[in-house]
C-alpha cells in the first residue's frame, strides 16, 4: 500500500519510517513524502493511480491541506480515489467540519497516535 505524507516539517519523514519500520520491511506499506501541498500535487500528477492513502497536514504555508484536499477531489476525480486523512494540531470543530465537507475520509489530531493510525490502515487494506 502506497502512502503519501504531506507535511512541511521534514522530521515527520524519519518518524514515519521508523514507526512503520516493520511494515516497510515486510513490504506492507510504502511511504512517499511531500513538504508542501504544491509538491504533493506534482507527485500525484505523475503517480496518481499508485497512491492509496494520503495523510496531509492542514496547516502549511502556501497551499493548505484543505486546499490540497479540494484539488485532490476535483482534479483527480477518477478511480481509484485515494483515501485522504487530514492531520492538524488545531483540533476544533471548524477545521473538522471543513475537512469533512471537502471530502476527507478521516480527521486525525497531532500528536499522532501511531497505534490508532495503524489500526485504521489495517481496516483500509482489508
Amino acid at each position: 500500500m502506497k502512502i503519501l505524507v504531506v507535511d512541511d516539517e521534514a522530521d515527520v519523514q524519519p518518524l514515519f519510517l521508523q514507526r512503520f519500520r516493520k511494515e516497510i520491511k515486510n513490504h506492507e506499506v510504502e511511504f512517499s513524502f511531500a513538504l508542501s501541498g504544491e509538491e504533493a500535487l506534482r507527485y500525484l500528477t505523475e503517480k496518481h493511480s499508485e497512491v492509496v492513502l494520503i495523510l496531509s497536514d492542514i496547516n502549511m504555508p502556501g497551499m493548505s491541506g484543505i486546499e490540497l484536499l479540494d484539488h485532490i477531489r476535483h482534479d483527480f476525480n477518477m478511480p481509484p480515489q485515494p483515501v485522504v486523512m487530514m492531520i492538524t494540531a488545531y483540533a476544533d470543530n471548524e477545521n473538522y467540519r471543513q475537512a469533512m465537507d471537502k471530502g476527507a475520509d478521516d480527521f486525525l489530531t497531532k500528536p499522532l497516535d501511531f497505534n490508532l493510525l495503524k489500526e485504521k490502515l489495517k481496516r483500509i487494506s482489508k
Binding site: E9, D11, L15, Q18, R19, R21, N59, A89, Y90, K110, P111, L112, F114
Partner: peptide, 24 residues
C-alpha cells in the same frame, strides 16, 4: 503554542519510537 507544540510532538514521538527501536 503551535510553535512549541510541534517540537514537543517530535520529542514525544521520537523518544517513543526510540524505545520501540531498543526493544527491536
Amino acid at each position: 503554542a503551535h510553535e512549541i507544540q510541534n517540537p514537543l510532538n517530535f520529542v514525544n514521538n521520537f523518544s517513543e519510537v526510540s524505545m520501540e527501536l531498543i526493544d527491536e
